[in-house]
Structures are given as C-alpha cells and as structure tokens.
C-alpha cells in the first residue's frame, strides 16, 4: 500500500489582527490518503476543509505537525516544485485560474513552467484536453466557454503536469447542475482510467455518493471518516454538523422511524428504490 498524502497532527492558523489570538482553522488532523483513491471532503463553511486542501500542495504550510506528499515534507522549500507537480489544484472560480486567452496556451502553462521540451508540451496538451473531453476547443477563447467547460480546461491545465493527485477545492460550487455533472464525470474518469488520486472538497452531499471514502470536517478536525454508506448512515450527526443528507437517506431514515425494515445506506436513487420496493412488498 502506498500513500499519496499523509498528515500528522496538522495544525494551521490564519494570521490574526494585532493583539488577538490566532484562530486555528486546523487543530490536529491525522489523515492518510491512499494512492488511486477518490476521496470527498465535506463540511460546512469554516469547517477547515478548504484550508486542509491548501496544505496538500504547500499553498499553505503547517503551523504545527507535518504534511507529506509521497513522502516529501511540504516544509522543505527545495521540494516545492516537485510537490506542486505531483498534486494539482483546481479552485472555485473558473475565471480566476485561467491564465491565457487561448485554451491550448492555458493548458500549456504548467508544462512550460516546468521546462518541458516543446514537442512534449504539444503531446501533453493534446492528451490533457482529450482526457477532459475538450479536444475540440484547442484554439478557443476560454472566456466564451461555459462554467463547466472552463473548469474542465482548468483540470486539463493541471493534468498537463502529469500529477499523481488532483485536489478540487470547491471547484463545483459556482457551477450549474450541468457544469457540475461535467466536472464530476471528468474527475471520476481520470480516477478510473489514469489512476489519478482525486480529493474533492465540496458541500454538495450528492457529489459524495460515488466516492471511495468520505471525510467530514468540523471545527478544524476530522469528524467522520468512512465509506459514503457508513458516513451518510449517521443522519442525526450530520444534521448537527450543519450538513444535510441526500433525500434518499432522509426518506429511508423516516421510513425506519415508522418501523419499516429498510437499510440506511442505499444512497443512489436506484438502490433506494430497490430497497423500498422489496420492503413494501414483503
């Protein structure tokens, strides 16, 4: 078993105003993210989930504890480029991460920074655009694309570094349902076909349904950690954390309270309907 990212009693505080005590956004996080896994990190605003994500590629450095990326300590300045090349990051606002005004030039930005030879850049750009299904848009102007398309360009721009891990820091928050679906299916495909580790930070519960693992953050700590079925079963606990559960789980939970023998972990619409149909008929 190899680890993509490992944190050890990770603490982080944003600088406070003078005379005030720093507020810790992360207060002791111990996590191990396995290579090739698809991990969803949930939590309400201010739970520390975005801060956590930004420590994964040394955008933020630990104030206490450690973060290791494939064994590399993020506090080691000399490893900075190597770490950032391994862990790509996609942010919330699609407009604020596109550098160039031609799609291919934007995707080429990271390999250019890494000093990749010209022919190799060409290959990487074409592969990356194909991987996100945007190969028809090579010479388009990014500002004319839809939100979902822009985020796919941003993902391609990260893939062109040939990273082992992609972190999406609320990258779906500003998208409409179509855009969200585009981005989600893209990262699921990258995970499946290229074995890229995906860490998806979000507050949309339904995006967690197909994950290998769900981590729920609260108050700078890991509150829940398990498979989607294990996590969403904790209906009351999630609600107390300011999160909702998918309507499917809500329905199953209500039916159980009324004495129906349905399982709580049938997350998807199909599973939920199958479970209910069986119980109602019996």
């Amino acid at each position: 078993m190899s680890d993509m990212i490992e944190t050890e009693s990770l603490r982080f505080a944003y600088p406070a105003d003078e005379g005030q005590k720093p507020v810790y956004a992360l207060r002791g996080v111990d996590l191990t993210i396995e290579k090739g896994s698809f991990v969803v990190v949930l939590g309400h605003n201010g739970s520390g989930k975005s801060t956590l994500a930004k420590t994964f590629n040394a955008v933020l450095l630990p104030a206490g504890g450690k973060v290791y990326v494939e064994g590399m300590d993020t506090l080691d300045q000399s490893l900075l480029l190597a770490i950032r090349q391994r862990v790509g990051m996609v942010f919330q606002n699609p407009d604020n991460q596109i550098v160039a005004n031609v799609v291919e030039e934007d995707v080429a930005f990271a390999p250019e920074n890494l000093g990749v030879p010209t022919e190799e850049i060409r290959r990487r750009v074409d592969d990356a655009l194909k991987a996100v299904g945007m190969d028809e848009f090579v010479t388009h102007a990014p500002h004319l694309l839809s939100g979902g398309q822009k985020q796919r360009i941003a993902i391609a721009g990260v893939i062109a570094m040939e990273p082992d891990c992609v972190v999406l820091d609320e990258a779906t928050a500003m998208l409409d349902p179509v855009g969200r679906r585009e981005v989600l299916s893209t990262v699921h495909r990258l995970n499946r076909e290229k074995g890229i580790t995906v860490i998806l930070i979000t507050h949309h519960m339904d995006e967690a349904e197909e994950a290998d693992r769900v981590i729920v953050m609260n108050d700078g700590r890991v509150e829940l950690d398990g498979t989607p079925a294990e996590v969403f079963r904790q209906v009351t606990r999630l609600r107390r954390l300011g999160l909702t559960v998918p309507d499917t789980v809500d329905l199953l939970d209500r039916l159980r309270r009324e004495g129906l023998e349905v399982p709580l972990d049938a997350l998807s619409v199909e599973d939920c309907a199958a479970a209910i149909a069986e119980t109602v008929r019996s």
Partner: peptide, 26 residues
Amino acid sequence: DVPQITRVAMALRDRGLPVDPAVYTV
C-alpha cells in the same frame, strides 16, 4: 434535473409500485 425524490418515485413505479409520479417532497 428533477428532484431526487421524484426520481425515486419514478424508479419505484418502474418496479411496479403504484406511487403518484407527481410527488416531489420527502
């Protein structure tokens, strides 16, 4: 999109349960 609950109702009808397709709340 349709509400998730409506989709559950549709899936239940596919399985032969006589639920009202117009339902949209839990």
